[in-house]
Amino acid sequence: MTGSVKYAFYPGCVSRGACPELYSATIEVCARLGIELETKGMQSASCTGAGVLQEKNRRLGDTLNARNFALAERTGLPLMTICSTCQGVMAQANDRLTKDPDYLKSINADLAPEGLEYKGTANPKHLLWILLEEVGLNRVRARVTRPLKGLKIAPFYGCYIVRPSSVLGYQEHPERSDALEQVIQVVGAEVADFPGKTACCGFPILTINEKASMKMVSNHTLSAKDAGATAMVTPCPLCHLNLDGYQPTAAAQARKPIDLSILHLPQLIGLAMGIDAKALGLNKHIMSTQKLVSQVAVAQ
């Protein structure tokens, strides 16, 4: 592709809450890749329900997502997410909404008072897939000014961008199954492959079964380290919250030091583009990224 592309931007709650660094890194990176982001028309979009609301009331979740899709339709732009969880929940809702016209009609009845109608055309896409399928990895490669040579990065997908594969377009887009690995290589780093990359980070049970949640964090981070990882990258801010924010707790429980930097997807790309670490919010993590950042600088 040439020129710029524009998306209705759905940042999700976490990038505007506990992970503001994801938001700023996204803005920085998208600007350099010629991805324009429409934020105004999406301001009144609500939470997707994150799967939590759906467990209480699936129809409620579907209605909220239909509302968000209708808002995106109103901008006339395709929809971009930066959160695996949002991506998954949206895709599941969209699957139900678009395969049953009667259902969609009844949902639309509840949107009507606001003057909204979902026509079924939204196709929510995570930044990761947009890079692969629309921007093209060649363009990313072309913008890399500081290849991350010598770094070994472990990909961590998060559940909702992987499962259930039947509603996430893996049939039509088999290349999505190693999307992160492809990005890691494009920015000049090496892939640290490890068994838990599509497993659960533990975040959803953090407040319910903390011990189990922490064991997930330590299992994944330690096995990534065993695979030689210098850092881990994730397209899911919720995974980031647990893998980064709770890593000290997990390390204490495992009685083992971990010290693994966890990057948001745009931070990884931004680093390779030579964007300032602070602008990427790399100073806002619980696990320090200083060593990583200086390693990148030294490599130049």
Binding site: G17, A18, E21, P113, K284
Partner: peptide
């Protein structure tokens, strides 16, 4: 300290009343 914590005063989205109505 890292500027990571969510805002203390949680801000509602514009048009939150529509969400409430749907609920």
């Amino acid at each position: 300290m890292r500027g990571k914590r969510p805002p203390i005063f949680h801000k509602a989205i514009p048009g939150a009343e529509n969400v409430r109505r749907i609920f």
